[in-house]
């Protein structure tokens, strides 16, 4: 019981202290050279597809498909970017509006997942009640069923909820966000529970002795300690909303509600005739916000993946 720390993910602060404790002696010059060659080779495989996309997106010749390997095209042009920003789809919706809808879906998904998930995770981790084990297994099992399978019943369900004469939940950004949340929630609960399991209980017990109730303990003690996992959950929720096209294409019928991912899916379709340069430019535009946030939050995200949580 005492060495259990090995199995749990190491919180960021702790890791920072430990960083630099590397094994063995300094490497030799020969090892250094060989390692550098290997590392550069790996780096080039990682960068190759990314460079290729970027180079296609700025290729000045505006051709439908590239005719050669041209990683650094002569004379860059932002024409493809201008084209997709000026007219992202044939529908009457601007790039900014598409982006706004994407952000709306993403934020709603992130908030819903975080609120519902953290409450449930706390209860599953710290409180003991009948049916806890059954519930854990149920959440895990649901996590494994792909969202694709639930389309038909969700469609019928969300379309049966109406407000007034015109507003239908299924045909709204909120409806899509709820459907996406159905997919993100099980993992969030599972992952957050795993993380909360690794937080020492002493603080909570002390607070309980001081008369704090469960809600106060949750809000003021557990949540602040669970910062990394909260960052991860919010981020994964946001990504799920940002990249979602499956429910959106099935549900949404007003172009005013369309999202960036839907536009991207339209370009990727089997019969699409979008020039590759425009697809590349659009892909870069859609990827950059999430990539940037990911790279900024990287340390938190890695720490917050409570992988010990599989123990259940």
């Amino acid at each position: 019981m005492t060495t259990v720390t090995v199995a749990r993910p190491i919180p960021v602060e702790e890791k920072a202290v430990r960083a630099g404790t590397k094994g063995g002696r300094q490497i030799t010059f020969k090892t250094q050279i060989l390692s550098q060659i290997f590392c550069i080779a790996v780096a080039s495989t990682v960068l190759f597809p990314l460079l290729w996309v970027v180079s296609m997106s700025i290729d000045p010749r505006n051709i439908a498909k590239p005719d050669g390997l041209n990683l650094i095209p002569s004379g860059a042009s932002l024409a493809a970017y201008q084209a997709v920003i000026a007219k992202p789809t044939l529908n009457p919706i601007s790039f900014v509006e598409l982006a706004r809808n994407s952000i709306e879906i993403s934020v709603i998904v992130a908030l819903l997942t975080l609120t519902l998930g953290s409450l449930a995770a706390y209860a599953l981790s710290r409180l003991h009640f009948h049916g806890r084990q059954v519930l854990m297994i149920a959440v895990l099992a649901v996590l494994m069923l792909p969202a694709v399978a639930t389309l038909a019943p969700l469609y019928v369900l969300l379309y049966s909820i109406k407000l007034g004469t015109t507003w239908v939940l299924g045909n709204s950004i909120l409806g899509v966000a709820i459907a996406v949340t159905a997919g993100t929630l099980p993992f969030a609960i599972w992952n957050m529970k795993g993380y909360i399991d690794t937080i020492p209980r002493e603080l909570e017990e002390a607070a309980a002795v001081d008369g704090a109730n469960k809600l106060q303990i949750f809000l003021f003690i557990v949540l602040p300690l669970a910062k990394p996992v909260i960052a991860v959950t919010a981020f994964f929720g946001f990504i799920a909303g940002w990249t979602e096209f499956y429910f959106s294409w099935a549900f949404l019928q007003h172009p005013a509600d369309f999202t960036l991912s839907m536009a991207l899916k339209g370009m990727v379709g089997q019969y699409g005739s979008t020039p590759w340069s425009e697809f590349a430019a659009f892909a870069v535009l859609v990827a950059i916000p999430v990539s940037a946030v990911y790279l900024l939050l990287q340390r938190y995200i890695v720490a917050g993946l409570a992988l010990g949580g599989v123990k259940g």
Partner: peptide, 28 residues
């Protein structure tokens, strides 16, 4: 008391999951 608090915490997530996850599952 402990169990009741637990259910209270679980209630929002369970309600939502009951409707958007478990119901579609049963329907399947």
């Amino acid at each position: 008391a402990n169990a009741r608090t637990a259910y209270l915490f679980l209630l929002p997530a369970l309600l939502v999951m009951a409707v958007i996850t478990f119901y579609p599952l049963m329907f399947q």
